[in-house]
């Protein structure tokens, strides 16, 4: 029977899954992913996770708990840095240790460190160490590594084409044709935030579906070209040193500037340190683009939808009524002007 390695459906699963899965499968190892987040799974996570961590880490605890009795190894890599000059959030770095101290009877953890801050080309070394856990030869590991990179680049290029991540993962896993469902309408909303908040439909109360139901095409940070992101973040005087944070801020700035969107929603999770900074950076920039509506939502453990639904409905109404008024005023030959002279800021 093949060895089973468990990957929690949380955190950077939503970015690196094609890479990990291809790598393990090419080594002849079976990959087991935890189930989708549910109320019960979250409840388990809350029971075991340290109180002061963020919602996303608490969710990840629930996924580990869901997996631990079903697999031979748990794959919880210690993600320090995945690209030059930036870091992954410190809570990710300590994640394997938090898990060890919280649970008894864990299967062996594969907690290989990934630190590519100085040399991104070093990715092979941690992958090699993972391969050696299973006593595979250098050539076998190298072959698996190459295939994993190929799959990852295919995955990333589908994302850049504007297809939503859950659809890509579904078609990739099920080996089915991609059926992009993003509406083609003329309402376009950018939804920015950490991928594990954007794509965990339980945690975010299915916000992508809600937006699509309201007729909006949804743009996420992964769809923006990395070069454009870099151009924007290079202009910020203080370096944004979180990898995902950099992507979120850069993509937001680019989308605001490009005027290709009608609204921008920042989706943060409760207790996330980086989010509290990113939210302010993005809000500040959004104020300079009054023609684009901006909304900030914070996800919490509560499951009441009313608050989120009210804000989303109002947000979409705001955009549509504004478009309606814009058309009327164009007919009358007027332009929307906002009186900035007496602005007070609080």
């Amino acid at each position: 029977m093949a060895i089973k390695v468990g990957i929690p459906r949380a955190l950077l699963y939503y970015r690196l899954y094609p890479l990990w899965k291809t790598f393990f499968n090419s080594l002849g190892i079976e990959v087991v992913v935890s189930g989708k987040t549910t109320k019960k799974l979250l409840k388990e996570g809350l029971k075991y996770a340290p109180d002061e961590t963020c919602l996303s880490i608490k969710v990840a605890f629930g996924h580990v708990q869901d997996l631990m009795d079903k697999v031979d190894y748990l794959f919880l890599p210690r993600l320090v840095s995945l690209e030059r000059g930036t870091y992954i959030c410190p809570k990710f770095i300590g994640f394997p240790d938090m898990i060890r101290s919280a649970f008894d009877n864990l299967p062996p953890l594969i907690d290989t460190s990934f630190n590519l801050r100085k040399r991104p080309s070093n990715l092979f070394f941690p992958m090699y160490r993972i391969g050696r856990v299973f006593k595979k030869s250098f050539l076998t590991i190298h072959e698996a590594y190459k295939r994993a990179l190929e799959e990852e680049s295919k995955f990333l290029s589908s994302l850049r084409k504007g297809i939503l991540l859950p659809e890509i993962l579904y078609s990739w896993e099920q080996k089915r044709a991609l059926r992009p469902s993003n509406p083609k309408g003329n309402l376009c909303i950018a939804l920015v935030g950490h991928p594990y908040n954007l794509y965990d439909s339980f945690i975010n109360l299915d916000i992508i579906k809600k937006l699509k139901d309201l007729g909006a095409r949804v743009i996420t940070p992964e769809m923006v070209e990395p070069l454009e992101i870099k151009k924007e973040t290079d202009k910020i005087p203080q370096e944004v040193y979180w990898s995902l944070g950099r992507e979120i801020v850069g993509a937001s700035f680019y989308l605001l500037k490009s005027k290709s969107i009608d609204g921008l929603i920042h989706l943060g999770s409760f207790g996330c340190g980086p989010d509290s900074f990113l939210r302010e950076l993005i809000a500040d920039r959004a104020r300079k683009h009054p023609e684009i509506a901006y909304l900030s939502l914070i996800l919490d453990e509560h499951t009441g939808e009313a608050g989120v639904v009210t804000r989303l409905e109002a947000f979409i109404d705001l955009i549509e009524r504004r478009k309606m008024a814009g058309r009327k005023s164009q007919v009358a030959g007027r332009h929307l002007q906002s009186d900035k002279r007496q602005a007070i800021s609080h």
């Binding site: 509506a293 705001l318 008024a325 005023s329």
Partner: peptide, 11 residues
């Protein structure tokens, strides 16, 4: 509200 249209809100 600007020119009779909601442009921003917070709750």
């Amino acid at each position: 509200v600007r020119d009779g249209v909601v442009v921003d809100f917070a709750m």
